[in-house]
């Protein structure tokens, strides 16, 4: 199974990695998510902004004579547009920034453009692996895998996975959660 690299190689790689590599997920060792995630996010942006814009436009049309409503309407349309365009443009880079690695004893997830983060969750701390796919995600045949620990601040979610891939990851993780901590030396 190509999910894991050998412990030896991964260890030396990690140690020689600079912070930039660790953060950017730029190295080939980081597994990437499906690029359909970008289309999904674009659709999500459209689905949420279009109704808002419509409401604002209708409000302006109805209360044409009331300057306050017109002003608020125009401002909110501009604000919504700016946020939507911003999110639209950044979607590509956001998708590319997401990376994950299933290592011998832990899962690492990295993401973010402006605010970057890397989280590492040892398998022994894992309480629950959740595979989820909302209706819109299913339409793009995407799924997310989320790892839960006893801490609420552990934020290890991998979005934009093929459903089969998500199941594969879940099964790989489930093996670890089923075996007690002592079995971590088993390696491959």
């Amino acid at each position: 199974m190509g999910l894991r690299s050998s412990p030896f190689i991964e260890r030396t790689l990690v140690l020689s990695m600079t912070i930039a590599e660790l953060f950017s997920a730029g190295s080939t060792d980081w597994l990437r998510v499906n690029s359909r995630l970008r289309t999904y996010w674009h659709t999500l942006i459209a689905v949420t902004t279009v109704p808002l814009l419509t409401v604002a436009a209708i409000a302006i049309a109805i209360f044409e004579d009331v300057p306050v409503v017109r002003f608020i309407g125009v401002v909110s349309i501009m604000v919504i547009m700016i946020f939507a365009i911003w999110a639209w443009v950044l979607a590509t880079r956001r998708v590319r920034s997401i990376g994950y690695r299933l290592e011998s004893r832990e899962l690492k997830v990295s993401s973010g453009i402006m605010f970057r983060r890397v989280v590492s969750v040892p398998f022994a701390r894992m309480q629950l692996v959740e595979v989820s796919a909302g209706p819109l995600e299913r339409a793009f045949s995407l799924a997310s895998v989320q790892l839960h620990t006893a801490s609420a601040s552990t934020d290890a979610t991998i979005p934009g996975l093929d459903p089969e891939r998500a199941a594969e990851i879940r099964d790989a993780l489930a093996v670890h959660s089923a075996t007690p901590a002592a079995a971590t030396t088993a390696g491959l």
Binding site: F23, T149, S151
Partner: peptide, 11 residues
Amino acid sequence: RIQSIRITQGP
């Protein structure tokens, strides 16, 4: 008793 390790960095 530590559950996970995170590194974060803002602009």
